[in-house]
């Protein structure tokens, strides 16, 4: 039985069956995500190139040191962003559980895990909205950079431009992911997948959601850590 995946892979190309052994929609989702990876990769490499071409750069630990309900001169670098990171990782885990429940045709488990995933996504978006708002009131926006370089010299607006563009693009992905998950939830509740006999749609939504988490791993490292 399991020989199909291991023993004779060359037969996959002999025609008559899918050489990828996934359905059309899932394969296309993979290709879409690959192209999206190139988009994000291009953004991040543009950021890296600009950083390599600049003498000074603001210290992220000075820029991102606040958190909600903190006092004016709070100094807690990395704390808030690590909470955001964990929120996204956990929402990715609940999405995996939703996908697995879907494979086992357990409708209730799918619903619960999808709701948890949606809550996680909404929580992440709220955190990001707070952070953008906070930075905006510090005077940072596209074309405006109130922060100095780490060595005390004047900084360019490249820092804020790249930050808002890339985290904004990622945030938009999170937003559309939440919308997709809400649609999946409605479809599950209306028994669309039960009638169809499979929950493959959840798997595709899951792929997208994990990709959003994956991109955050890179964005988080490039902007907050390095």
């Amino acid at each position: 039985m399991s020989t199909t995946t291991t023993a004779v892979p060359e037969k996959l190309w002999s025609g008559g069956k899918s050489p990828f052994k996934v359905e059309y929609g899932k394969l296309m989702m993979w290709y879409f995500l690959m192209s999206d990876a190139f988009t994000f990769g291009a953004f991040l490499i543009a950021y890296g190139t600009t950083r390599f071409a600049t003498n000074g750069w603001p210290n992220p630990n000075e820029v991102f040191k606040s958190y909600p309900f903190a006092s004016e001169n709070a100094n807690a670098p990395l704390v808030f962003v690590s909470i955001m990171t964990f929120i996204l990782i956990i929402s990715s885990v609940t999405m995996v559980l939703a996908v697995q429940a879907g494979q086992q045709m357990k409708k209730n488990a799918v619903v619960i895990n999808l709701i948890l995933t949606i809550i996680g996504g909404a929580a992440f978006l709220s955190c990001q909205a707070w952070e953008w708002n906070h930075l905006f009131h510090e005077g940072a926006w596209w074309g405006r950079n109130p922060f100095l370089n780490a060595d005390g010299t004047a900084s360019t607006t490249n820092f804020t431009n790249f930050f808002f563009t890339i985290t904004g693009f990622h945030g938009f992905h999170v937003f559309s992911g939440v919308i997709i998950n809400i649609i999946m939830l409605i479809m599950t509740l209306t028994d669309t997948f039960e009638k169809r006999g499979h929950y493959l749609m959840i798997e595709k939504a899951g792929l997208y959601w994990h990709f959003v988490d994956l991109v955050w791993v890179f964005v988080f490292t490039c902007f907050y850590l390095i």
Binding site: T5, V93, D213
Partner: peptide, 18 residues
Amino acid sequence: AFYIVGYFMHLKHEVKNL
């Protein structure tokens, strides 16, 4: 990234072609 793509996105368990 490897763990997310390989296990959460399930790519490690797909066919080699994919």
